[in-house]
Every structure is written in C-alpha cells, then in structure tokens.
Simulated scan of single mutants.
Amino acid sequence: MQKFQLENEYVLVEFFDYGGILTKMVNKRTGQNYVLAYEDEQSYLDNPYFFGATIGRNAGRTFPPHYLNYAGEKVVLDTNEGQLHLHGGKNGLHQVTWQVRSIDETAFQLTYEDTKSPYEPLALKMIYRLVKNRLSIEMSALANEPTVCNLTNHSYFNLENQKTIEDHYLQTASAEIQVIDEQFVPTGEYSAMNDPEDRLFDFSQEKQISEALVQKTNLSKICTNGIDLAYCFKQKDTAKPKIILTDHHKKNQLKIYSDQEACVIYTLNKISNDLKLANGNTIERFSGITFEMQRRPNYVQTEQEYLTTNYSAITTYEMD
C-alpha cells in the first residue's frame, strides 16, 4: 500500500492507493483527525469495518443478489452477508489497488479498470480535491455497455478523541427513511418519521445521537440498538449541507454536501473484533458514525432505470 497526502493551511488529508482508503482528514485549526483509523496499517488489508474505503460497484445491500443486464439476462452476484450482496461483494472496490497520479498541488486522480467483478467492465475515476477547508470526492465512470454503478466512501467520523460518538450532535436535511425488514432489506415503504417509534431517528432538528441509540422499539432492535438506516432526501439542493455533525464541546464540526439522493447512516453497531485505533482507543460499539452518500439501497430491484454507461457523483466534506 502506498500512502499519499494533500495539505493546505486548513486541512491535511491522507489516503492509500489500496481501496482509495482515507486515513486522515485533519482539521489543522484544532489538530483533530475527523476519521477513525486503525493503529496497525496492515488492518486495512482485511478492513472488516470498511474504514475510509471506496465502496462499489453497488453500495449497500442487494437482495435478491442478482440483477438483469442490458440484454435481459440474469447476472448472479456473490453473497457476503447471509443471503445479501453487500458493498460490491467479497471482492469489492475497497480491496483493489487504484492508480494514483497528482493533478496539481490541490488534487489527486485515482483510476481503476474494473474487469474482474461480476458486473460489466467499467472504467472508474475519482478525484480527491482540497480547496480551503473542503475535501471533495468526485466520482465518475464510463462503460461500453449499460451496467450497475453506485459508489460511496465509507469513512467513520469521530470529531473528538472520545471512545464513542454518542454525545455528538447530528442534523440531517429533510428526509424520509427506508423501511427495512430483519435482513435490512428495504420493503419498498418509507417513513416520514412522524410516529413515536420512528421519530427517534429524526434528525431534521439538531440533537444528540444518543437519543436514537438503545431504544425499546422494534426498529431499534432491527438496527441492533444503533442507527443503520437510509435517509432519502426530499430536496436536491446541493448548496446546503445534507449532514451536519458537531462534537460535544462544539469545537469541531463537519458539514457534508452531496448530489446523491440518499445517505445510509450507520453508527458502528456490530463489533466482531477489538482492533486498536490510531487515536489510542480500542474499537467498540458507536466508536464512529459513517455517512454513505449513494443511490437509495436496493434500487436495482425497485427501479426501472438502474443501468448506466456514464456515472457521476460528488460529495464534499467541510471541516470547521
């Protein structure tokens, strides 16, 4: 794995060519690294929690694990979470080496020719661009044949060196959540979070994340007592942040802007091993929170227009 850095007077960003993995997003005003990172860099080779990784070809869970290609033929996908195809399967983009070249002192370009996945061949490009206190991830892809492409970044955020993000404040743009079953598969229904059970997950007004954790509701139990839900935004305005995350002491703030229609918010609810983190803590439940900007999960099973030859998406992280 080769490491690269982008830096200006406001922000220091560090990433690997392997998986395009972001390991540092440092607000130089406070010295705080906003993203969780492993203490042992070899942990990124397996990366059980997808720390900082580029996710694809299809972010989120796909069920049934197949889709119809442009010729109407069934393409069977591998399963890596029970009967689900998760984050591109067993050999997703988080486990490939990207070609990296410097564009200028503000940006790097990452490219990868995906010819080995179950999906149709695709030429992918990402640009990591740093402008003042903003890191933008510009994703694009071109294919000769219509195919599936839905990419995201899977960084976990913790804006202070606390063991968990429970005391962080969160606000989202106006959204409705996908209703899911016990397998985390969308049912096709949506909730405006008006009823008492779902209202716990409504962050349209700023509140502490802890208010949605370990609640005695059915949805909380499905989400293993944390948050693991797709927030589907009602507005397409890219000039306003979709996400605002603030630490408990109001010293660090992250604003996320995106042109994507949905964001899967996940609070690291399931811990399979206790890896050491670069901030000195050991990973535990709710150590961080991830905001996976993407198309709404399982769209290949619910929408007619799910194939493309020309994909693009942009997400920007503003560090205050």
Rank of each mutant, 00 (worst) to 15 (best):
S43W: 06
Q208L: 02
G72Y: 07
L135I: 11
E303K: 07
K240R: 14
G52H: 02
S287W: 04
L307A: 03
E261R: 12
T97I: 15
K250Y: 12
A107G: 04
T79P: 01
L159Q: 08
Q253A: 13
I137N: 00
S174R: 14
L277P: 06
H66S: 14
A239P: 00
T54A: 09
Y10T: 07
R285V: 14
K276S: 15
Y266L: 13
F157P: 01
S204K: 11
S136I: 01
P118N: 01
L245H: 07
N310S: 13
K90H: 06
A123P: 01
D247S: 07
N150E: 11
L213P: 02
A141N: 09
I21A: 02
T315G: 04
T302L: 12
F51K: 00
Q2H: 14
Q304A: 12
L124H: 06
V76H: 00
A230D: 15
Q260T: 10
I222P: 06
E305Q: 14
R199N: 09
A59G: 15
T111M: 11
D198F: 09
L86S: 09
Y38N: 03
G188F: 03
A175E: 05
Y266G: 11
H168Q: 08
P48W: 04
N153K: 10
G19Q: 05
D167F: 02
L151F: 14
E197L: 05
V76G: 02
Y299I: 05
L307C: 06
H154R: 08
N298S: 03
S312W: 03
E14T: 14
S258H: 08
N8C: 06
P186L: 10
N279E: 10
L22R: 03
N252Y: 11
C263R: 06
M319L: 13
N33L: 05
K163M: 14
L93W: 15
R61K: 12
A278F: 05
E41M: 11
S287L: 05
K207Q: 07
E318L: 04
L229P: 03
V35W: 07
E211H: 02
L36F: 08
S102Q: 15
G52Q: 00
I127G: 05
D228K: 06
A192V: 02
T54F: 12
G19H: 03
K74V: 15
V300W: 04
T152Q: 08
G31T: 06
Y67Q: 00
K116Y: 02
T62Q: 02
T111V: 12
A141L: 08
M193L: 13
L93I: 07
G280V: 12
R57E: 04
Q42V: 00
T308E: 05
I289P: 02
F50W: 08
T187Y: 11
L135N: 13
I314C: 11
A262N: 10
K132P: 00
N310V: 01
V179S: 10
G88R: 04
D320C: 07
G288T: 06
E7W: 07
I127R: 05
K207E: 05
